[in-house]
Amino acid sequence: MTLGSQILQYIISGISIGSIYALVALGFNIIYNTTGIINFAQGEFVMLGGITAASLVTIFHVPILIAFLAAVIIVTAAGAFFERLAIHPLKNPSVITLIIITIAGSILLKGIAMFIWGKDTYFLPSFSGDRPIHFLGAAILPQTVWILGITGLVVILLSAFFKFTLAGKAMRAVASNRMAASLVGINVKKMVLFSFALSAAVGAVGGIIIAPIALMDYDKGAIFALKGFAVAALGGIGNFGGAIAAGLILGILEALGAGLISSHYKDAIALMVLLLVLFLKPSGIFGSAQESRLKKF
């Protein structure tokens, strides 16, 4: 194997894992934009999506497409339920209180998942087989293509939603000024509910498409939340394009770090590069300094 095709292989691996980070980060951004909350339960939505789809397919032998839709619907409902239960009753809470509430929520969701699915590892068969596509000496998994395609589709749909639909515009209005939005008749509380449901759905999609590559168990949410948060922050929180770019960059950095330097320190290498960037450009890679000054958190 030549060095060139090795590096190509690293980059392909990096892109596929990076696009999952990006999807998780999108979930963070949707909620952040309407509420200003960093939702640490986002990783649990990913886990729930993956584990629901995997158990539907492997235990109940549901066709993959139906399992996909069912899992997204179930997790979306879970996200809405979580908002009604934990966020809705609050009157003017501080950001840090909200963050701790989402942490409590993630502990609860994880606990519930443990009771439903037990401690077993679940795995979803690849959407279209495991025979790799060879490209310049590197192997591309069909699932990687699915991941990239679906991630791209989600991004396009989300941007169209925020640009062209009334609900999307209303959510953006809430994001830029809560008070003004409610004055023009937007039901802010409803938009918050909506943003939780939407970000749960996006998280679930991420969980389902990664499930054939990674394995799913009830304890897997935290790692996604961690990486997704890092990516969202570095992309400039609330910035969709930034999240995609930062996700891919983190994934590729990790893969190159492991491949060319040391797999023992792969996560540390990627983080160090990102921290350096953050120190040099304190508003995130793609965030503007002006915007970040206006943010609550």
Binding site: M1, S13, G14, I17, I213, K220, A255
Partner: peptide, 17 residues
């Protein structure tokens, strides 16, 4: 001599190496 984290989802990089 390669390692991976207990929650890692993909070892293709280590295996490519």
């Amino acid at each position: 001599d390669e390692t991976y984290g207990p929650k890692d989802s993909d070892m293709t990089v280590q295996l490519t190496k």
